[in-house]
Simulated scan of single mutants.
Amino acid sequence: MIGKIISSVIVTLFTVNLAYAQQGVSFDDYLATLKEKAALAGVSQNTIDKHFAKIKVFKRATANGSNKALNLESYIPQNSPEITVSTARAMFKEQQDALIALGDRYGVQPRFLVALWGMTSEFGEQKGNFPILSVTASNAYSGNKEQFYIDEFIAALKILDTNQVQYEQLIGSSTGAMGHMQLMPSQYLAYAQDGNGDGVKDIWNNQFDAFATAASMLKESGWKNDETWGRQVSSINPISSQLVGAEHTETFNDWQELGVRRYNGNDLPKRDDMQVSLLMPDGENGRQYLVYNNFRLLQAWSVKEHFLLTVTYLSERIKNPPIN
């Protein structure tokens, strides 16, 4: 995943996991293999010659805290407190006309973009300033999600190949996520947009370029502007754990038969044209949600359910009460 909550962060420094070093492979040796992979992937020799010497072993800044142990009852108010809600609503109101126009252009409700903006980078205040080539190469070298980070490293080189982004601008978080909306290099490469019409696709300094890029990614992935993300529900019968999770889907009618009801106890919508998933992030005694395809597309930022449900919570707080 790539979206990161930065709340009550304690920053520490530590060296990368030396999985390859323990096998006798130095970082320079590993870079040599990355250089070969980059050339085979079509990165220009000019970009390789120009930038590989700048790549260093990266000491990562990580967010440590108690978020992992929190349930939603604590997690949501801690990570989307009232100050975040009021800031999101103020930001939306201040730029409402431009946001609505952008939402109409891409078919993505702008409240979700603003919610993601708040949750991933604290409205642009926490974008990260680490060199992406060093981050992605070092994360690949650590052996953790190696192929993922090799692909992102090569994508970052291809961004430089376009000559539209300079090396010094290619910065982001310790996970490789970049700019206002914390997008990975491969996402920028595939979906980058000029959101304000100035001829530049700058997700680092222009939030509308970042919004447009995120909206383009959601649209191309199948976002439905006439649907929302999901709803909180309750169940009158025990639900098998095998049916729980975003990877498993049933229709509303199926969930109704299994004992799932609206949160107020009323019946679910009588329809079988949507594939819906049941989430129980805190187990059967915690909150329960039915989520739709739009929610699953938000996993482009993170697969962590607590984080995504906080994003959707913030989107609802932006929506209601209506902003005039």
Rank of each mutant, 00 (worst) to 15 (best):
G65Y: 14
D97F: 14
F153C: 05
R296N: 03
N285H: 11
R231K: 11
F130H: 09
S7D: 03
V303Q: 14
L290C: 09
F252V: 14
P77L: 12
I48G: 02
L279D: 08
M184Q: 03
L113I: 06
F211A: 09
E125V: 04
N225M: 12
E316K: 14
F123A: 04
R105C: 10
V276W: 04
R317A: 11
A101Q: 15
N64D: 14
M119T: 08
V25G: 10
V291S: 01
S277C: 09
R296M: 08
S315K: 02
E94N: 11
G283F: 02
G24F: 00
D202Y: 01
G179F: 02
A21L: 10
L297S: 03
L40H: 03
R317T: 02
E227F: 07
V244L: 03
S8H: 10
A210F: 13
D104T: 06
L70Y: 07
G265N: 01
E247Q: 15
H180Q: 11
N163R: 03
L297F: 01
F58V: 08
M119L: 13
Q147F: 14
N320I: 13
N17I: 15
S26D: 11
S80W: 03
P322Y: 04
A21N: 05
M280L: 12
L189M: 06
A214V: 04
N205T: 11
G245P: 00
I55V: 08
L31R: 00
A246E: 12
Q299Y: 09
L13W: 06
D282F: 08
L102N: 05
L183Q: 01
T213A: 01
G197S: 11
G3Y: 00
T162E: 00
F123P: 00
A53M: 11
I48F: 06
L258D: 05
L160C: 03
P131Q: 07
A190M: 00
Q164P: 05
I323L: 13
F130S: 02
A212L: 06
Y30M: 05
E250S: 02
W117I: 12
D97R: 13
S277I: 09
F123Y: 08
K68V: 15
H306S: 07
G195F: 03
K158C: 05
Q169I: 00
L189E: 01
T33I: 12
Q182L: 09
E152I: 11
S134L: 09
N266L: 08
E122G: 05
Q95D: 15
A69P: 10
R296P: 07
S80A: 05
